[in-house]
Amino acid sequence: MSEEALRTENISKSFGRVTALRDASVRLNKGEVLGLLGDNGAGKSTLMKILTGFHKPDGGKIYFLGKEIELKSVSHARSLGIEPVYQDLALVNELNVYRNMFLQREIMVGGPLRILNDGAMREFAREHLNEMGVNIPSVDVEIARLSGGQRQAIAVARSVYANAKVLLLDEPTAAMGVRETAVILDLIRRLKERGDVSIIVVAHNYAHVFEVCDRVNLLQNGRITFDRATKDSSVQELLNLVLHEIREARGQVGKA
């Protein structure tokens, strides 16, 4: 068995009367791309937000690089190398590309005055985006002027630049056209080839997951119900599982 990057053990989380996660156990190996599938409300976003330190779990354990950890905040998780790329990308439309790239990790001068070193940030952002093969007109344009694919690529590049060990991609291809999706999937493949980062991809689209992921997990009602290598499984197998769930749900509605 390969070395693990991130693992959760029986994570549970409720919001008031709504139980989002019950005993969710996920394992991400080093250098692996893991697809996390599930319906709306299955608990995908909650699990992601727990792994990023945004929510605290009600119960369960989190292991990072073999050691048990307690994530105190988003900044804490990021300082360890767990980098989220949220669905809304956490990009600020009003700011240009390089200022977004360095948001909350600004290069500064002037000590306590915290004056921004725009020159350095611009230069580093340009170099890094080139290296990652991210195509944008300039690092000086406002994020609002870029396409969805470009924004996603910048959010991912930002996390990688921050020395991510584990990258959490929340619905990276949601609401994207075919061409933009291809850009994102290419980027994930390139990251896999670099091999220095392990990735969890949360997604709706089974085809996209099977295209780039090594392994796939299915989350249903707050539990992991399926865990298999993508080469040993198929989109059809997963669809059957979900169809079964739908039929069961219908049956229950019928009985009630």
């Binding site: 988003v74 949220y86 956490a90 990009l91 009003e94 948001l103």
Partner: peptide
């Protein structure tokens, strides 16, 4: 600017 431009995003990034 980040707080006003994208409140949730700014919080998410720390």
């Amino acid at each position: 600017i980040a707080t006003g431009g994208n409140l949730l995003g700014a919080a998410e990034i720390g």
